[in-house]
Design a protein around this nucleic acid. Structure first.
Lengths: 231, 231
DNA sequence: CCTAATAATTAGGTATACCTAAATCGGCGA
DNA sequence: TCGCCGATTTAGGTATACCTAATTATTAGG
């Protein structure tokens, strides 16, 4: 035995696989490759195959998996994955608003706790926060019944033509990155003027509020999601 | 691999063993028997032996264990056990005061979360609560530096002579019991008159506030800790 | 169309933390 | 003092979730 099981019956590990599959599945609903999962989860490809075979055999299966053809969430798996995302984002919002955590420490704490809180805890912090729709990074918080409103935002690296954009969200995966992004004033809601730079490795932007010009590396820029406001 | 490791390097399971040893070690600082640990943790005696051997061999060892002679916490082990208890009691206080949890749901949630919160989380909820000294059940919350003030309270079942007592704390281990105890008005701070009953299985008490007389079973009464106020 | 690189899978191990069943130990009563 | 009984330990297994190394698929380029 060992390996703690949650209310749901899943282990922490299983939840992490489901969450990873959800986030690697684009809006196009395609299949996710084992290698992509392995990279995301930081485990060996063989471990992914093992886990997918196990999940695939379980009843009811949270995934639709075919040898050499990648994996996709079943409705069951998607329901759970979305619930874990809801937990994560509610916890981040709670840590930020109630416990005054600094932005870049939210992710790691939420990542651990999301697997272990009860439905009651979820319900109570949601109530305390007034059932928020967005977390502190600008990500949509799925509703209790599993609806996750889709944003049609693009990555800052995907901008085709110069224009004025507004920041929707910033990725919380890398604390160092996030800290830098925040220090530049790039927070959800901020407006900025984007100029396609000559260098393929950098993106030039200008913040509307401060009129400061900035050059961001591809890596940093890809952590920022935006939508166009005007040309 | 598998089995999550905390900041400290311990697994959840190890923490639970340390906590159980701490709570089974009376104020007399004696050794704890394997059987007692097995019963407390709900595992087979053989599992206890296994774990104690493993802990005993680790460096620095959290326990002082000798074959057939029981186990005792080393200073290292005691430090960790007390920290986990601090986590548990702070979390309970937080759930009760900030998230309005009902008394009898505190324990289970805290029992899960105590292993996974960071030092920052601990520090933030302690600050939010004004560094409380007692949890909602009346148990002392160890300080940050591991001091745990000792209470010289006795169990309600240990009363020798009739008299007036004040409730120090109630055990949170069994939610059903706790719910019943609470419904009788037996909360920390309450005063009551105890009369040694004729039956060896029951204890008669009378609450000062309501003047209601009650008979408690041994099991229920042993969940209540008190100290004498006068004869 | 075939091969070489990359992806994926299989085979065989490790560590944690449980379990049951079979010894073995230790202290108490006859 | 001896034997017995309960407590403890040893021996041997299970399940989870990882790993590496070896093998097999797929696919893209020549």
């Amino acid at each position: 035995m060992s390996a703690r099981r949650q209310a749901n019956g899943n282990t922490e590990s299983v939840d992490n696989y489901l969450k990873a599959i959800l986030s690697l599945t684009g809006p196009e609903e395609g299949r996710v490759a084992s290698k992509a999962l392995a990279d995301r989860l930081g485990v060996a490809p063989a471990s992914v195959t093992n886990m997918l075979q196990k999940l695939s055999a379980s009843q009811p299966s949270p995934v639709d998996y075919e040898r050499h053809r990648g994996v996709r969430l079943s409705p069951t798996g998607k329901r759970r994955a979305v619930e874990v995302v809801r937990h994560h984002r509610l916890i981040e919002t709670f840590l930020f608003q109630v416990l005054d955590y600094p932005l870049e420490e939210l992710h790691d704490e939420a990542e651990r706790l999301e697997h272990f809180i009860s439905e009651r805890f979820e319900e109570r912090i949601a109530a305390k926060l007034g059932h928020p729709s967005f977390d502190p990074h600008g990500h949509v918080i799925p509703t209790m019944d599993g609806q996750m409103a889709e944003h049609d935002s693009i990555l800052l690296t995907e901008v085709e033509d110069d224009g004025i954009f507004m920041i929707d969200s910033v990725s919380d995966r890398d604390p160092r990155n996030l800290r830098y992004i925040e220090s530049c004033g790039l927070t959800p809601g901020a407006r900025l003027h984007v100029t396609k730079s000559v260098s393929p490795d950098e993106i030039s932007i200008q913040l509307s509020t401060t009129s400061t010009a900035l050059s961001l590396s591809r890596e940093v820029a890809s952590a920022v999601r935006i939508h166009q406001v005007r040309n």
